[in-house]
Design a protein around this nucleic acid. Structure first.
Length: 924
RNA sequence: AGGCGCGUAGCUCAGUGGUAGAGCACUACCUUGACAUGGUAGUGGUCGGUGGUUCGAUCCCGCCCGCGCCUACCA
């Protein structure tokens, strides 16, 4: 094995073996364990969030596969209607071609081309991450089979009266020319104005004042509303206002919606361009006057002067014209929530159009119950609140989009515009007995992407066919996803799953946090702080990183800032850390209910961890590889028994943590075992045994070699779900020596939680040894005694137990504490001047003999004494408190008593020791 | 406006009703035959503030301060 761990020489080779061998497919006859991947959009490449999420899923999948479950991880990608169409459209625009130039069919060809490219890049990224998805089942939401599923779902929902078509106010994106669902609209607070405008009464010379944030919409006003109990305006209700600029007369109405405290207490009502006003309009049968074109420019329903103006220009002109007429009372600065399309970033316009809707509240009911009754469990649990909050207030879901890329709505219209729904045109004619003379045209629109995503857990398994896969793998085991799509996706899958499969789509929803940059900022292309997971795996130099972050930007003016920040944050680019280090970083950061601040230093730390494991393996191999022929009796040493016990504890902990989705704790348990127990202590303890000479130690050597191999082999299996590559690479060499057969570690059994038993006696002995060694090291470290200098130590006050331990395990001490000799001081023996460490009642003495500065030793002992005294005081204080002794549990009181006892002994030992040394200092 | 979450070492984060932990960073020493991507020893915290419950609170409860996020129709 190479001296240094080099991931690049391992990873791609290993992945190819796994994939070529077909090991990712479900196998065996264990209980099924299934995860459906949240299909990434084919809009670009995988980002850190994907890598994080996929690592979690892969760890779960590999863990359960090793436990013998029949494990399916369903891969796939999402066509992502709006997002993908925009990407391709922008590319065309860059070449001076518009979507409409090409026409629908040719445009769709371009999108499919893009899908090929982007999908290929994503598939490559997936593989580099080491994910063990069953590629043979790879799916795309626009695959013919999935299109069938989508049509089937639409038709069934329609037949059940759960889908309807209607002209309603929708969120209209005037740039993309499509309707959006409520979820696709992001509202943010922005600075604006509140314009107070005077509306004269049609008769008489009174006027009232309305306040608005959107003065241009007054061109579509069809009423002014006041609160029914507002005495100021009671006499106006039922009268008419002469709407300025338009020459129209509109009524003054009374409606509860109006807040008399706000502004003047009068509200202009524009039913065609405001959701509240729409409702009020419905209640009062008001006319709806649409004043916008699909581009949100003023249309022919407005006075001629305004026609053709953009909404921004129209606003300016309306304001100016009202001012000229003396009808502008005042203009105040005002903060308001501005709704923008999540893709286009442009202000969304409430707009009257014909759209298709799903009656969501009907589907939501059983979906709410499923979480209430525990059929579906959120991890962490508090996300169920978010889910309930939305589901209990769910609005009908607008599912039609005026796009080209997506699932075409399976509805056909006759010449009169009557809609017929069916799987295809033939089906429609058959179902509705329409003769060939009736001309049918299919709806031009496509479905919201989330409509097909909602079917994902069963459409990927062959639904609406009654396949064996559906029977076996539905419902799935767990959904791993981010909180940002609980509404978009999780809720829809639950509704659709229960509707069509009569069962929940998954039993557990594990919600992970967001991956942010080191400063806690959300990663985004516009901020220029995104990281490509591949760049952490392979490394990237600074110039390439800057280029990557600043090229193909939508807002070129941000370029300089991004470049500057990148040069500051990554002065040396990014080193190659390898997949395993990246994966381990993700898992170790996966605490519950918390976003991740992604820190490169942490990845570096886990890269070092990989190196540590690598070298530990090298040590084991180096001591066992040429010893295969050395067979015979084996005896297991104290260290062997101890590490076996520690391994059993660690194994148990890993199982517990994974069961609770606490990957951070599982990762930490493994890290600590590997580094702090296996490497720091066990390998060191093994050395004196391995280097022992003579036949009388042959069985000890064989035992330790066996234990080294056995422990390492089990450790590799424990680590494999988290770090698949390095564990496979090492395992291939270790397994044969450990007597384990198999083609790959990924199909080996995961260590069971009852493997091995905890050996408390061995643990206590090793603990004593550690204290001994640490005591000597501390003296060495603080007294500046060279590590290379071997020491002779004396033991004072040793008990019989201490003597037994020295006799049985003394050889370890010589090696670990670098001692030449260990001797006991008898009762009457003269005690030489020495530095001392306490181990219970025993004192470990390192004679000074020029090694040690008495004053420094006194200082050191006094610091220790200070601490012991402080602790003692606290314990004595507690025991002096009657209430504590009376109320605290017996065990706690007993612990305190022991502490006092030991503390007092330590204090007197330390004081005596300080006295002894003080005598050595001349003049004292 | 409502809901959720966060505040622990310089940084990133675990954690527990009973003497506060890790990694990184920092200091000193060390090329000891696995590993300098390393080893050994060490420095560093009134656990955001304030009341309460308790024998005992960093942990449970109330309030306050600061910071996020999510929902919501105040023109």
């Amino acid at each position: 094995m190479d001296k240094t761990y080099d991931p690049s020489s391992i990873e791609q080779r290993r992945y190819k073996e796994w994939e070529d061998s077909g090991w990712f497919a479900p196998a065996g006859d264990g209980d099924p364990y299934t995860i459906m991947i949240p299909p990434p959009n084919v809009t670009g490449t995988l980002h850190m969030g994907h890598a994080f999420q996929d690592t979690i899923m892969d760890a779960l999948i590999r863990y359960h596969r090793m436990l013998g479950r029949r494990t399916l991880w369903q891969p796939g990608m999402d066509h992502a209607g709006i997002a993908t169409q925009m990407v391709v459209e922008r590319q065309l625009n860059a070449k001076g071609v518009s979507r409409t130039d090409l026409g629908r069919e040719a445009f769709l060809e371009k999108v499919w081309e893009w899908k090929g490219q982007s999908g290929g890049a994503i598939a490559n990224q997936f593989r580099r991450l080491g994910v063990s998805m069953d590629w043979s089942r790879d799916c795309f939401t626009m695959d013919p089979e999935l299109q069938d599923a989508v049509r089937e779902a639409f038709v069934r929902l329609y037949d059940d009266g759960l889908i309807y078509r209607g002209k309603r106010l929708v969120n209209w994106d005037p740039v993309l020319h499509t309707a959006l669902s409520d979820l696709e609209v992001l509202s943010e607070e922005e600075d604006g104005f509140l314009w107070h405008m005077r509306y004269p009464l049609a008769d008489g010379d009174e006027h009232l004042v309305v306040a608005t944030t959107r003065p241009e919409t007054m061109l579509g006003d069809t009423a002014v509303a006041v609160h029914p109990e507002d005495e100021r305006y009671a006499h106006l209700v039922g009268r008419e206002v002469a709407l300025p600029l338009t020459g129209r007369r509109i009524p003054v109405i009374a409606d509860d919606y109006v807040d008399p405290e706000f502004g003047s207490g009068c509200v202009k009502i524009t039913p065609a361009h405001d959701f509240n006003d729409y409702e009020i309009g419905q209640r009062h049968s008001l006319e709806q006057i649409n004043i916008f074109t699909i581009d949100a420019a003023i249309n022919d329903n407005a006075p001629e002067d305004y026609q053709g103006l953009t909404r921004e220009d129209a606003r300016k002109k309306v304001v100016a014209d009202l001012e000229a007429l003396g009808l502008m009372e005042k203009i105040e600065p005002h903060k308001l929530m501005v709704p923008r399309g999540d893709r286009s970033g442009k202000v969304v316009e409430p707009y009257l159009t014909d759209q298709w809707y799903v009656r969501a509240s009907v589907l939501a009911k059983p979906a709410i119950e499923a979480v209430e009754n525990g059929s579906i469990r959120f991890v962490p649990e508090n996300w169920s609140k978010t889910y309930f909050e939305w589901m209990n207030n769910i609005e009908d879901w607008c599912i039609s989009r005026q796009l080209w890329w997506g699932h075409r709505i399976p509805a056909w219209y006759d010449a009169d515009g009557k809609a017929y729904v069916g799987n295809d045109e033939d089906d429609v004619r058959k179902r509705h007995s329409l003769g060939p003379d009736v001309v049918l045209t299919q709806d031009e629109d496509v479905l919201d992407t989330w409509f097909s995503s909602g079917l994902w857990p069963f459409s990927t398994l062959g639904w609406p066919g009654e396949t064996q896969e559906l029977k076996t793998y539905y419902p799935t085991s767990v959904l791993v996803t981010g909180f940002d799509i609980i509404f978009f996706w999780v809720a829809r899958m639950v509704m659709m799953g229960i509707k069509f499969m009569d069962d929940v789509p998954f039993h557990t929803v594990y919600i992970h946090g967001l991956v942010r940059d080191h400063a806690g900022q959300k990663m985004s292309k516009a901020k220029g702080n995104v990281l490509d997971p591949l760049d952490l795996i392979d490394g990237i130099d600074l110039e390439a990183l800057v280029e990557k972050r600043t090229s193909s930007m939508m807002q070129p003016h941000l370029k300089a800032g991004i470049e500057k920040a990148t040069r500051k944050d990554f002065p040396d680019g990014i080193p190659a850390f390898g997949t395993d280090a990246l994966r381990f970083s993700f898992l170790a950061s996966a605490t519950t209910g918390r976003d991740i601040r992604f820190d490169l230093h942490r990845v570096e730390g886990y890269r070092n961890f990989c190196n540590k494991l690598w070298n530990a393996a090298r040590f084991v191999l180096m001591n066992t590889e040429d010893k295969a022929g050395d067979t015979g009796d084996m005896t297991y040493s104290l260290a062997d028994r101890w590490i076996t016990s520690a391994l059993a504890r660690t194994t148990r902990a890993v199982h517990e943590h994974v069961a609770e989705y606490r990957f951070d704790l599982a990762a930490r348990a493994l890290y600590e075992f590997t580094w702090n127990e296996f490497c720091d202590w066990y390998l060191e303890l093994a050395k004196p045994v391995l280097t022992s000479e003579g036949d009388e130690h042959a069985s000890d050597r064989r035992g330790t070699r066996k234990c080294l191999l056995r422990t390492l082999e089990a450790l590799l299996r424990l680590l494999h779900p988290m770090m698949p590559y390095i564990t496979e690479e090492i395992w291939q060499r270790v397994a044969p020596l450990a007597g384990v057969e198999g083609d790959t570690i990924m199909l080996q059994p995961f260590p069971a939680d009852d493997d091995g038993t905890v050996d408390e006696a061995a643990e206590a002995d090793i603990d004593w040894l550690k204290q001994f060694v640490l005591g000597v090291r501390q003296i060495r470290g603080e007294m500046d005694i060279s590590p290379s200098r071997r020491l002779d130590v004396l033991l004072a006050g040793a008990s019989d137990a201490d003597r037994t331990r020295i006799a049985d395990h003394g050889t370890y001490l010589a090696s670990l504490a670098r001692l030449d000799s260990v001797n006991f001081l008898g009762e009457g023996d003269v005690e030489p001047p020495a530095a001392a460490a306490l181990l219970g009642d025993m004192r470990i003495l390192v004679p000074m003999a020029g090694l040690i500065d008495p004053e420094a030793e006194i200082n050191r002992l006094q610091r220790q004494l200070g601490k012991v005294q402080q602790d003692l005081k606290r314990s004595e204080g507690k025991l002096g408190n009657e209430k504590f002794v009376k109320n605290a549990p017996e065990a706690v009181v007993a612990t305190e008593r022991t502490r006092v006892e030991e503390g007092r002994a330590a204090v007197s030992q330390l004081e005596a020791q300080i006295e002894r040394i003080r005598l050595l200092i001349p003049g004292e």
